[in-house]
Design a protein around this nucleic acid. Sequence first.
RNA 1: GGGGGAAUGUCCCGAGUGGCAAAGGGGGCGGACUGUAAAUCCGCUGCUGUAAUGGCUUCGUAGGUUCGAGUCCUACUUCCCCCA
Length: 418
Amino acid sequence: MSDAPFKSEFLQTLKARGHINQITHSAELDELAAGGPITAYIGFDATAASLHVGHLFSIMTLRRLQQTGHKPIVLMGGGTTKVGDPTDKEGQRPLLTEEQIQSNIDSIKEVFSRFLTFGDGPTDAVMVNNAEWLDRFGYVQFLRDYGVHFTVNRMLAFDSVKLRLEREQPMTFLEFNYMLMQSVDFLELERRYGCILQMGGSDQWGNIVNGVELIRRVDQKPAFGLTTPLLSTASGQKMGKTVGGAVWLNADMRSPYDYWQFWRNTEDADVGRFLRLFTDLPAEEIARLETLQGAEINEAKKVLANEATTLLHGADEAAKAAAAAQAAFEQGGLSADLPTHEVAAADLHAGVALAALAVDAGLAASKGEARRLAQGGGLRINDKAESDGNRVVTAADVVDGVVKLGAGKKKIVLVKPV
RNA sequence: GGGGGAAUGUCCCGAGUGGCAAAGGGGGCGGACUGUAAAUCCGCUGCUGUAAUGGCUUCGUAGGUUCGAGUCCUACUUCCCCCA
């Protein structure tokens, strides 16, 4: 990659916003992108019912692509998921059934329409499932058509394979084939849609390069790869790993309120970078926010939370989440938009043990944990710390129609008798 | 085909002599300090129950020896290494 400034708006934008790690044949790609719309894709495997914040980086990259006048393809890995990407994993993952994969794909789809415009126009996004072609290959046909273009010597040299071997962790033949399948995907998309660029995380470099080479070799056509940097927080944590595990994008798996909180809790050192990556705010505005110091940087975090939540869940949800947060954290008050947990009014009249209620409301995984939490001073009823997990919560604790339960400083649930 | 080794708290790594839910670390959670930040310090980290002694379930799977098994024996499963 040369240091010369890019000509195409697409690459300029990606570079300025911090999306680029490596590019193959960057000058040539730049030339093409400057000359007119190009088509590019990113693949998403359907290993879970929702994508998470880690995927957001890729989604935003496609968004920038479309914003700068090009055509994005979202490739759903209906076929590849059946095999499992060995990249950077320590061991083989359990294989998913076809039904699981399909149901995952169905539930993932929705999210993309928030970030991309789909349709039939020249720069409208399209979604394709690689099961369409991968499922159809016969074994021998696949080997003859594509197997000839890959040498094992070369495959063994790729990091994804090499690491496994070095760590003495087994890699099945099944997984070993993943790389070929991904390469064939690229070739197929090139033939069907004239797709010339595959993008992905830096861990996908090996897989991507293979596809690039396959196209150049088999079809003698230009093809390119671009990877995004590995995303981690300033303190070295993997991005998107928090309290309950992954930060899911689907609203039913992580509420807009929690999503807003996730961004609000960004580390100071990450705010500028995340604003560039995960919002559409103009560079000048971000530069201004970045100059904020000390406690003022919280304002920048709110902007980040608002923008990011608006992109995913819409402005209304973002505003509600912001209002709820303001009420809870800045005014110590209540807001109907805080997470709410309903209990039967009769139960509350009879009295419920605090520990049990906390578990019920999702603040602790077990009564023992809730009790320990209380003992450590982390459980609050109506903002008053309660160290006894066996303390009985009754109707007398209801204030303004709810009992406000808090675990730690950041988790609040309104328990509402119904 | 032969020989040797490994599997531990279901988040990960990892110690473990026949006799305490099992050292330690990471991670996570909570507290203090702050700004809903980072760093630091302190506490917690199988389930259940208690004022407390407890009860139950955990060391690859299934059996066995034993008053008692993560630890010993047998078979099985998976993986690694060496020889062929």
